[in-house]
Computed example of a mutant assay.
Amino acid sequence: MKNRWITFFIGIITVKVTGKGIERFINTLLRNGLYIWSVRRNGIESIQFKMRLNDIAKLRIISRGSGLRIEFLKREGLPFLFKRLLLNSGFLVGAIVFLIIITILSNMIWGIQIKGAEPATEYKINKELDKMGVKVGKLQFFVENVESIQRQLTNNIEEITWVGVELQGTTYHLQVVEKNEPEKPKYLSPQHLVAKKKAVIVDMFVEEGQAVVDIHDRVEPGQLLVSGLIGKEGQNVQVPAKGEVLGETWYKTKVVLPIKSTFQVYNGEEVRKHTLKIGNLKIPVWGFGKIEFKEYETESNEKKINFINWTLPVSLVSETHREEETETRIYEQKEAIEIAKKMAKIDIKNKLPEEAKIIGEKVLHQTSDNDKVTVSIHFQVIENIASGQPIIQGESE
């Protein structure tokens, strides 16, 4: 089978030999190393066989003076197929151009569908997509991947909480989740408001219920702040106590900061390479040679090529290699202490509710040595310390 494929690429000729002394002529061909097959007789003085195209010149030389008549009946194989294609080059070129056009059209953006967004939000999304180049009629190869589109839309449009982007064939499908409007107050069952933590009361806003503490009072965790029982003794009515009780609370945090640290940074140098990927085979298209950087990070982006409704095992891969350098940062001790203080403040803010405010800070302890600085800071915070606690059935003041 392997030899048959080789001879197909070389070219195959069907030869008819007519005359006397055919057997002697066949033996002469074999002695001269000519490969023939499918030998069959057409009569007493006629025989037919197949041979390789590149042996025809030897056949002509051997047949001189033999008195035999040589006819070439049939031509097969790649050389003759290629010749016929050249004779029909117009059809061939038309077929290639047709396939190229279909492939290009199959990789263009033909639709953008947005679901789950209000008209005003949808208009903003379309404008943002237009800025990114995601528009009908543009080739998908020149558009960023869906993860990047999703990230930019979420970051740049305040009205949306999340957006899912999916490319199906030639259409981008976007599923949008908008930010919810403030929820309507839910019905609350009868409850008290109690302290979540130790604090000193600085202000109170009671919407419903009876306050049982006052400003400047010091409270402990679980202590009653606003009662959900109102009315005269013995005629109490249970209500859902509502309001805010602002208290001064205290936090302590500790930060350890190395004086010397190393990290990787980009220096601005980069090399871009583009390859055509067919299965596991990669064919360089642009950007040849080795990467000369000692340390670098590679960002890869692969664009699949579609043909009508099929995804071909062919893709365009672009790689960006960014050079990295090792940077060493050394703080002065005074500078390190200030940075440690800022880090401590950020750490506390991350632990507090959004409405909480830091009103004071005091460094309790700070140490420094050759390797690091250690800072302990006490923070004073104003926050809502009230938490709902259901009223137990049968409870009365």
Rank of each mutant, 00 (worst) to 15 (best):
T7Y: 04
F9C: 04
I12F: 02
I12T: 06
I12D: 00
T14Y: 03
V17Y: 02
E23T: 14
N27T: 02
L29W: 00
N32D: 01
G43S: 14
E45Y: 12
I47A: 04
D55P: 00
K58W: 00
I61D: 02
I62A: 00
E71P: 00
R75N: 06
L81W: 05
L85P: 02
L92G: 07
A95K: 08
F98H: 10
I100R: 05
I101K: 05
I102A: 12
S106T: 09
K115S: 14
N126M: 11
L129V: 08
M132N: 07
Q150D: 04
T154D: 06
I157D: 07
I160H: 09
I160T: 11
I160E: 09
V165E: 03
L167E: 07
T170S: 14
H173Q: 15
V176N: 04
E178M: 11
N180D: 12
K186L: 05
Y187N: 01
Y187W: 01
L188W: 08
H192Q: 11
H192N: 15
K197A: 08
V200T: 15
D203Y: 15
E207S: 14
E208D: 07
G209E: 07
G209C: 10
V213T: 15
H216T: 13
L229H: 11
I230P: 02
K232F: 08
G234Q: 10
N236S: 13
A241W: 09
A241G: 09
K254Y: 12
I259P: 01
S261C: 01
V271P: 01
K273Q: 10
L276D: 01
N280L: 06
L281A: 00
F288K: 09
F288G: 08
I291M: 05
E299A: 07
F307T: 13
I308L: 15
E319A: 05
E325T: 03
E332C: 04
E335F: 03
K345N: 05
I346F: 06
D347Q: 15
I359A: 04
K362P: 00
Q366S: 13
D369F: 03
V373Q: 02
H378E: 12
I382P: 03
I385V: 15
Q393G: 10
